[in-house]
Computed example of a mutant assay.
Amino acid sequence: MEVLDFVKSRLQLPSTMILVVFTCSFIFLFHALPALAISSYQNDPTEGPTQLLEIQRKTDEAAKEPPIGMKESQEKTRRGLNEVQGEADFEKMKRPENSQSANSVEQEVEGFLEEITGSNKNK
């Protein structure tokens, strides 16, 4: 029994050290990895400011004027996404007209389950 206690005490220090080193390196890597995202795509500084400045200008104008009536508000809203934003980024917005080929969540889950189980409802 003394031999087992001796071996256990001899292995306890290295195993503790290995655990501490692993934990420290794990923490270091997970704190350092977000910094690697810096090399990812960087926005062009001139990409969005033009649209944002126009939206800001319209917002400032709307804030200076008295509240508009319902008919005028509906007319402005028909021309774009909302009264102020207009058609800015309208082509990037997901809507039924440009999402016809998209799968619903139910279809995605059914397809995933069919792949896992190997069954196909169409057979």
Results as ranks from 00 to 15, higher is better:
residue 2 E to P: 04
residue 114 E to W: 14
residue 73 S to L: 05
residue 70 M to E: 08
residue 102 A to F: 05
residue 122 N to H: 01
residue 33 L to E: 02
residue 76 K to N: 08
residue 66 P to R: 12
residue 101 S to E: 08
residue 48 G to H: 13
residue 90 F to N: 07
residue 93 M to W: 06
residue 64 K to W: 06
residue 32 A to T: 06
residue 22 F to S: 08
residue 120 N to A: 05
residue 105 V to A: 12
residue 25 S to T: 11
residue 91 E to N: 11
residue 73 S to Q: 11
residue 112 F to G: 01
residue 1 M to G: 13
residue 79 R to S: 09
residue 122 N to V: 06
residue 59 T to P: 00
residue 105 V to R: 14
residue 100 Q to L: 11
residue 81 L to T: 13
residue 12 Q to A: 13
residue 99 S to T: 13
residue 72 E to Y: 06
residue 121 K to E: 06
residue 74 Q to K: 14
residue 43 N to S: 10
residue 46 T to S: 04
residue 119 S to N: 08
residue 55 I to L: 08
residue 107 Q to W: 02
residue 112 F to P: 02
residue 34 P to S: 07
residue 110 E to A: 11
residue 45 P to G: 05
residue 73 S to C: 04
residue 48 G to M: 01
residue 99 S to V: 00
residue 14 P to V: 01
residue 6 F to V: 05
residue 120 N to W: 12
residue 108 E to K: 15
residue 7 V to Y: 15
residue 7 V to M: 11
residue 17 M to T: 13
residue 32 A to Y: 13
residue 112 F to M: 10
residue 107 Q to S: 13
residue 54 E to A: 13
residue 109 V to Q: 03
residue 78 R to S: 08
residue 67 P to V: 07
residue 102 A to I: 04
residue 39 S to Y: 10
residue 88 A to D: 07
residue 9 S to I: 04
residue 61 E to K: 15
residue 111 G to W: 09
residue 123 K to G: 02
residue 10 R to S: 10
residue 82 N to T: 08
residue 38 I to M: 04
residue 105 V to Q: 05
residue 60 D to A: 03
residue 69 G to W: 04
residue 111 G to I: 04
residue 57 R to V: 02
residue 40 S to L: 03
residue 69 G to K: 15
residue 72 E to R: 15
residue 30 F to M: 10
residue 24 C to I: 13
residue 74 Q to S: 08
residue 51 Q to G: 07
residue 87 E to I: 07
residue 66 P to T: 12
residue 25 S to K: 13
residue 121 K to C: 00
residue 72 E to P: 00
residue 59 T to H: 10
residue 108 E to S: 10
residue 101 S to C: 06
residue 38 I to N: 11
residue 111 G to Q: 12
residue 42 Q to I: 05
residue 22 F to G: 05
residue 33 L to Q: 12
residue 76 K to L: 09
residue 110 E to S: 01
residue 39 S to L: 03
residue 79 R to N: 12
residue 56 Q to D: 03
residue 45 P to T: 05
residue 75 E to P: 03
residue 99 S to E: 09
residue 99 S to G: 03
